[in-house]
Simulated assay, not measured.
Amino acid sequence: MNLYRSKNHRIFAGVIGGIAERFGWSVALLRLIWVLLTLTPVPGLIIYLVLWMVLPER
């Protein structure tokens, strides 16, 4: 599984764009889902920050 941060679909760090590119999903839909998940307590934001630090940029 080659996950990476996107250079083309980035707003903040390209994590969501990279995941969407890898699996062929809609970037906008995945961002919407991510926002809804992060409205719940903090774990969504922590997961994003960890992925930002761990995933290489494409």
Rank of each mutant, 00 (worst) to 15 (best):
G18K: 02
Y48W: 03
W52P: 01
I11D: 14
E57R: 15
T38R: 02
G18M: 05
T40D: 15
W52Q: 14
I19N: 02
S6H: 09
Y48K: 04
P56V: 04
R5I: 07
L32R: 12
I46H: 02
L36M: 15
N2Q: 11
I19L: 10
I16F: 06
E57K: 09
S26C: 13
M53W: 09
G14T: 03
L30N: 08
I11R: 12
S6A: 12
I11S: 12
A20K: 01
E57Q: 07
I33Q: 13
V50R: 04
F12L: 12
G18D: 03
V54Y: 13
V42P: 13
L30G: 01
L29D: 12
P41W: 11
N2A: 09
G14N: 05
S6W: 05
I16P: 00
L36C: 14
P41D: 06
L3W: 01
L55N: 05
R58M: 03
V35T: 08
I16S: 02
V35R: 13
M53Q: 11
G17A: 07
L36S: 11
L3T: 01
R58E: 11
P56C: 01
Y4K: 03
L32N: 13
P56A: 01
L30F: 10
I11M: 09
A20W: 00
I47E: 02
S6K: 05
E57F: 08
L32A: 06
F12W: 09
V42M: 09
W52G: 05
H9C: 05
I47R: 01
G24L: 08
G18S: 01
P43D: 04
F12H: 15
P41N: 08
V27P: 07
L55A: 02
W25Y: 13
I19D: 06
T40R: 15
R10T: 05
T40F: 11
P43A: 02
V15T: 02
P41T: 05
S6C: 09
Y4V: 04
L55R: 00
V54G: 08
N8K: 11
L3I: 02
V42R: 11
W34S: 10
A20Y: 03
P56R: 00
L30M: 06
K7C: 13
A28E: 06
I19S: 01
G44Q: 04
E21A: 07
P56E: 05
W52F: 10
E21F: 11
L49H: 05
L39S: 08
V27Q: 05
V50E: 10
T40Q: 15
L36H: 10
L30T: 06
Y4I: 00
N8F: 14
V54H: 05
A20G: 13
A28C: 04
G44R: 04
L51H: 03
T38W: 00
I46L: 09
L29W: 13
W34M: 09
F12Y: 12
W52M: 15
I33T: 02
I19E: 00
G24P: 03
L45A: 15
L37M: 03
